[in-house]
Design a protein around this nucleic acid. Structure first.
Length: 546
RNA sequence: GCCCCCAUCGUCUAGUGGCCUAGGACGCCGGGUUCUCAACCCGGUAACAGGGGUUCGACUCCCCUUGGGGGUACCA
């Protein structure tokens, strides 16, 4: 088969794109790029209960941030659209009718309670459940009657029972399933929508998908889907399947969206003196909603969670792709890191720019076993990527980051951002740069008690600070070189390490012991503001200390 | 319960029967550099889950046990 490769990412739009989904999207995308093929984005919105109206947009935003663009799909269009399954109802209906006519599918009128009872019974007997196919299929008239009586009408696919179902998988080889293990599954729900297992097969065929790359959680669906494919499209070739390993969290269990609310809830429970009314207000929740969240019965939406975490100073594990964005990771880092979860180039390369990644990617090198998402290693990757990203590009990333967290540094122009990047060399995340430099853009200094105590109150930090103030005041040229010379000379004169001189000054101007190099920090703050802050500090802590 | 998948340092992994006294990366530990945080430099620690086979020879092949993961929906 020499046809062009076609892959697809088919998320159900239930919320933000999380790392697992991003990895699936990435592998499909990489394979399409590697082979010069097509990458399709298809939105699987067949569950009316679960879909939120903005979720598809959120997923697309996240993919775009990662740089994973689709050749066909929503917004991009394409010859095999529409790409929202909710807009393809007539297509599914047609194929359902075909199966019904060919007696390859049949109507069912069971209620939820009926099915529960059947399952319970099967559980007790054999341990496995397979829907018992009726000897005679209900007719269309029967279905009409049932509908009129208000009973639920679904359609099930009659899974062929004559031979074992063998799935050929790129990563796992041949996997054999006994046909009786595969139940006659529902292909059309009582609300008329197709189920995932059905829509997926129809669309993969109609969209000419050649490679289905997805998580291991879909492995058990595959024999049924393949049987359906053969029933629907005899004499056509099945796509190639690759079931990737799953990624689990390093905080314990499964990498799940529920982790963030969980961590926050635990943090709240452990804080003895929290003003809960204030917290509710910060989160934009009623007190009742907050109590319900703390009790573990509900989880508020993401902005509320974020707001509370920020207010309480709790850092939550990043799960969604936007979380990583907001934590100051570069998209290049995420792509590189995610690619290496369940795949490797076969040599010792790890930090790889995108073109290299694409060039090296190969489905044949997918890993079989599950992997843990190691945030420590992610940070190391980000540090490397920050180092190797060209300054202009990094500046764009920084500006995007500042926007998303709404930082006061946003006021700075390009030249200034470029300088911050330069003097914050070695930063691990964009958040490092922001945190360090923020003091340059705020009017008031928030003093960190520990830093003040250690650097200003203990020893003669204040005395040195006073001298530094006078020396700075006397300078007519306020360049970082002059400032450096002055501070070094002073340290030498006093027979002190530079730290003894620099640290009091640092705490005075930024409130803690962390900032960009002191000479740059002072110069950028400016003479007037630096002197003002030193003055404030002297006044405040001389009084306090005595 | 039943079905399916997986199993090398703490973590991600290389390894496709002899090249393995098991390699790399992150972490961790020790040392160096340093105005803070980082970054950087040098060194070190650490793994083939257990038991049976097959073979002249098993990390590599087979079986069992154990452990982990997934599925078992009118969710995808």
């Amino acid at each position: 088969m020499s046809d062009k490769v076609v892959t697809r990412f088919a998320p159900s739009p239930t919320g933000y794109l999380h790392v697992g989904g991003a990895r699936t999207a990435l592998f499909n995308w990489l394979w399409a790029r590697r082979t010069g093929g097509t990458f399709i984005l298809r939105i699987e919105d067949t569950d009316q209960k679960r879909n939120t109206p903005t979720a598809a947009k959120q997923v697309m935003d996240d993919l775009n941030w990662l740089g994973i663009g689709w050749d066909e799909g929503p917004e991009a269009g394409g010859p095999n659209g529409p790409y929202l399954q909710s807009e393809r109802r007539d297509i599914y209906d047609k194929h359902i009718r075909q199966l019904l006519e060919e007696k390859k599918a049949y109507y069912c009128f069971d209620s939820t309670e009926d099915l529960d009872a059947l399952r319970e019974e099967a559980q007790a007997q054999t341990g496995g459940f397979a829907y018992r196919r009726p000897d005679k299929f209900p007719t269309a008239e029967d279905a009409e009657k049932a509908r009129a009586e208000g009973r639920p009408v679904t359609v099930r696919f009659a899974v062929p029972q004559d031979e074992p179902l063998v799935v050929q998988d790129v990563v796992r080889g041949a996997i054999t399933f006994a046909p009786r293990e595969i139940s006659d599954f529902i292909i059309q729900k009582s609300d008329g929508f197709p189920t995932y297992n059905f829509a997926c097969v129809v669309d993969d065929r109609l969209m000419k998908v050649t490679h289905v790359i997805r998580g291991q959680e879909h492995l058990m669906n595959t024999p049924g889907q393949q049987a359906l494919w053969r029933a629907l499209f005899p004499d056509t070739e099945l796509p190639t399947y690759a079931h990737m390993s799953v990624t689990v969290s390093d905080t314990g269990g499964k990498l799940s969206k529920r982790e963030r609310p969980k961590v926050l809830r635990e943090a709240i429970t452990q804080m003895p003196d929290i003003h809960l009314d204030k917290l509710a207000q910060v989160a934009g929740l009623t007190r009742q909603q907050l109590d319900s969240f703390i009790a573990g019965t509900t989880a508020p939406d993401m902005p509320s969670i974020d707001a509370m975490a920020q207010y309480l100073g709790v850092s939550l594990p990043e799960i969604n792709i936007v979380d990583f964005f907001k934590s100051g990771y570069l998209p290049e880092t995420m792509v590189n890191f995610l690619a290496l979860l369940g795949w490797n180039p076969g040599d010792d390369r790890e930090i790889m720019p995108l073109p290299e990644l694409i060039d090296a990617f190969d489905l044949a090198r997918l890993t079989k076993s599950n992997s843990l998402f190691d945030r420590k290693k992610l940070i190391a990757f980000n540090t490397e990527h920050i180092k190797m990203t060209p300054p202009e590009k990094l500046r764009e990333h920084l500006r995007d980051y500042l926007k998303v967290i709404d930082s006061p540094i946003l006021k700075g122009d390009d030249e200034l951002l470029a300088r911050l990047i330069k003097i914050c060399e070695g930063a691990r995340t964009l958040a490092d740069i922001e945190r360090k430099s923020r003091f340059l853009f705020t009017d008031t200094v928030e003093y960190d008690a520990k830093a003040v105590n250690k650097v200003l109150l203990k020893g003669d930090g204040l005395a040195i600070l006073a001298i530094v103030r006078d020396k700075l005041a006397a300078m007519d040229q306020f360049s970082e070189e002059k400032i450096e010379t002055m501070l070094r000379t002073l340290a030498e004169e006093k027979q002190l390490g530079l730290g003894k001189v620099a640290q009091p000054l640092r705490v005075a101007i930024c409130g803690n012991t962390i900032s960009p190099p002191i000479f740059d920090s002072v110069q950028m703050l400016g003479k007037e503001e630096t002197l003002r802050r030193i003055g404030n500090a002297l006044e405040k802590f001389r009084a306090d200390g005595k």
